[in-house]
């Protein structure tokens, strides 16, 4: 299999799904770029070049640059989805949900229920999340816990390029609205990605490492840190299971509970702020269902309850990293009985 970056994987999934289904259109700010300007057409292909080349292939009728009006075009995607298109809207940074959340959680998420099951809303909102880009407080948040909270939405958080291509294809083919999170510092990360189209089903966690001592449950970019920590800990005789839930809604409770019970020690890694995030949610799930199997209190490694800072010196302290994960695993092993 050829090595492809996260960026290429997303681009390829969009291209293949647009080839596969004429109803798939993509829209967003500067997703082609240069519209109405005297210089190059397809000038940007998205702010980080993820959608580059799609407009020349599919034309401006299916690759729709929008004005900077998130409420209008995210709502437009919802309305288009309810009436027969399969739009993929790019919300450039998830932080911008603040200016369009109504269209996602009050409109798209609830159509099916409010309309008594007589609506399908096959829309995808692709959005960048996460710290580490020196992008400061309004361009660095995780926020997937907010979307996970809303019934009617599905939430996918791919941890690498392979996962990204398969989960995005599934998102586009899915008949429910999906919020698809792309970590902005991962776009250049490469793994083997098949050329052919493929899908990864929602609600099926990926167990990336199998071990006996500690179960690490991690989300998105943190899965890679958890894998690194597990490999490093293996050298000192601590064997870890690592679980990547892939989607926070639906959540693969079965795999989480099974792997938590097997080791009896759980560390949950979540880049999001600590109150009401995926770490608290998963910890509560485990406590409620398999408390008796636990040998030690659950450890959570998360970002702090503070906005994401700008200064690299501070931001590096903000992001949960491999050393913090290893320390949490060692601590929980020490507490075992």
């Amino acid at each position: 299999m050829p090595m492809k970056s996260f960026r290429q994987a997303i681009n390829e999934a969009l291209r293949q799904e647009m080839e596969r289904d004429q109803r798939v259109v993509i829209m967003g700010e500067d997703i082609a770029g240069g519209l109405g300007a005297p210089g190059e057409d397809d000038a940007w292909g998205g702010p980080l070049g993820v959608t580059k080349g799609l407009m020349p292939q599919f034309g401006r009728n299916r690759v729709l640059d929008t004005p900077i009006t998130e409420s209008a075009f995210i709502g437009c995607a919802a309305g288009a989805a309810a009436t027969g298109l399969r739009p993929v809207a790019e919300l450039m940074f998830v932080d911008f949900m603040g200016v369009c959340f109504d269209q996602i959680f009050n409109q798209a998420a609830k159509f099916r229920y409010m309309f008594g099951g007589r609506a399908v809303t096959p829309m995808v909102v692709r959005t960048m999340y996460g710290a580490g880009f020196r992008a400061a407080s309004q361009h660095s948040q995780c926020l997937y816990p907010v979307f996970t909270h809303i019934p009617g939405l599905k939430v996918a958080i791919p941890s690498n390029a392979y996962e990204a291509k398969g989960l995005l294809a599934q998102s586009i083919r899915d008949d429910d609205p999906v919020i698809f999170f792309e970590h902005k510092v991962m776009y250049d990360d490469e793994v083997d990605v098949p050329d052919e189209p493929y899908t990864i089903p929602f609600g099926e966690a990926n167990v990336t490492r199998e071990g006996d001592d500690v179960t690490i449950i991690a989300f998105g970019r943190m899965v890679n840190f958890a894998n690194q920590a597990a490999d490093s800990l293996a050298a000192s005789g601590i064997s870890c299971t690592v679980v990547d839930p892939r989607t926070t809604s639906p959540l693969d409770k079965e795999t989480i509970l099974e792997t938590a019970s097997e080791t009896g020690r759980v560390v949950v890694i979540d880049e999001a702020h600590p109150r009401c995030n995926m770490a608290t949610d998963v910890s509560a799930l485990i406590c409620e269902n398999c408390f008796g199997d636990l040998k030690a209190p659950i450890k959570q490694v998360t970002g702090p309850h503070a906005p994401v800072p700008f200064s690299p010196a501070l931001e590096d302290l903000y992001v949960p990293g491999v050393p913090k994960i290893e320390a949490a695993v060692r601590e929980i092993m020490g507490k075992g009985h």
Binding site: F73, G75, A78, G79, A80
Partner: peptide, 25 residues
Amino acid sequence: MMGANGIVGGGPPLVCGAALTAKTL
């Protein structure tokens, strides 16, 4: 009929979507 709407101003973006569907298809 895309719905009455509990949110004041909720409808116009949705209508852009329905219009986009009509135009695209």
